[in-house]
């Protein structure tokens, strides 16, 4: 049995006539230790999918199984890194991480908890900023705090909802490496939601495109057979990378065009010509 399984998931918002089906017929299975990326356009229902997996939302029909058990609530076993960091602005970096650690290890004493907080803050390279508030940090630093907070809870699976979406290209690259680095240390199961195909190929073992919503569903999967650790600069010359990248982009473009042509309507123009005022 797979580690995480999504069986025939449908998710509808609203009731009756005004309801919209965001996700339909989603089937997905992730093995333990795998790094899976889901790539899709903005507004295609990626965040809804993530919230179904982490337990913030319940599917309208179908079931989410985590280690064989249905997901009915959030759990410390599945750590979440949100798109917009979601740090509590009135707490310092250390306090934000401490809050999570304290919930994840309720039986441990304070020394252990404090040690764990400083370890994980050090891991993301923010020890000098441990007493600063999120407002005083840059976007990249804030997302690092969110990474530290999620990992300090020692989750079995990490779910990342466009974690680097709001960052500039350079910070993005650095953080990709950092996340991969942390991931490779104990190979936790990871699910990355992203809108960047290159990022997916660079980081994941498997990429699954999400056809855009409404009625979003998962497309065919693409395996990434590139040796780890991957070298970002060498990646561009890797024929395997080029092939996969082109295939995914072609697929996404096709469904994009499909969507456009579906909404295209033939307009009949009236047969008129400018009136001549010259009698």
């Amino acid at each position: 049995m797979a580690y995480l399984e999504l069986n025939n998931i449908y998710k509808t918002y609203g009731e009756g006539d005004s309801s919209t089906e965001v996700l339909s017929n989603i089937n997905l299975s992730i093995e333990e230790g795998e790094f899976v990326a889901i790539v899709g356009f903005t507004g295609s229902g990626k965040t809804t999918l993530v919230n179904l997996i982490n337990g913030l939302l319940k599917p309208t029909s179908g079931e989410v199984l985590f280690k064989g058990q249905p997901v009915i609530d959030t759990s410390h076993e599945r750590g979440v890194i949100f798109q917009n960091y979601s740090l509590l602005p009135w707490l310092t970096v250390g306090q934000n991480v401490f809050m999570a650690v304290k919930e994840a290890f309720p039986k441990e004493n304070k020394t252990f908890l404090k040690q764990r907080v400083s370890d994980y803050v050090a891991m993301v390279g923010l020890s000098p900023a441990i007493n600063k508030r999120p407002k005083e940090l840059s976007g990249g630093m804030r997302q690092r705090v969110a990474v530290a907070r999620a990992l300090a809870m020692n989750p079995e699976m990490i779910i990342m909802d466009e974690p680097l979406g709001a960052l500039d290209a350079l910070t993005r690259g650095n953080l990709q490496d950092e996340i991969l680095n942390i991931w490779s240390q104990d190979k936790r199961t990871a699910l990355l939601i992203t809108n960047d195909v290159d990022e997916g190929i660079y980081m994941a073992d498997r990429i699954i495109p999400l056809k855009p919503g409404p009625n979003a569903t998962l497309g065919p999967e693409f395996k990434i057979d590139i040796e780890r650790p991957r070298d970002k600069t060498a990646l561009n010359d890797n024929p395997n990378f080029k092939k996969t990248r082109n295939a995914i982009i072609e697929y996404l473009m096709d469904i994009g065009n499909e969507r456009k042509s579906v909404s295209q309507k033939e307009y009949v123009l009236p047969d008129i010509s400018p009136k001549s005022f010259v009698a």
């Binding site: 759990s75 917009n84 809050m99 919930e103």
Partner: peptide
């Protein structure tokens, strides 16, 4: 977002209100 954080961290009701 803050409510989601509270849910993901699984804070109790009182913790959620006061923290």
């Amino acid at each position: 977002d803050y409510i989601n954080v509270a849910k993901v961290l699984k804070l109790g009701t009182f913790q959620k209100i006061f923290k």
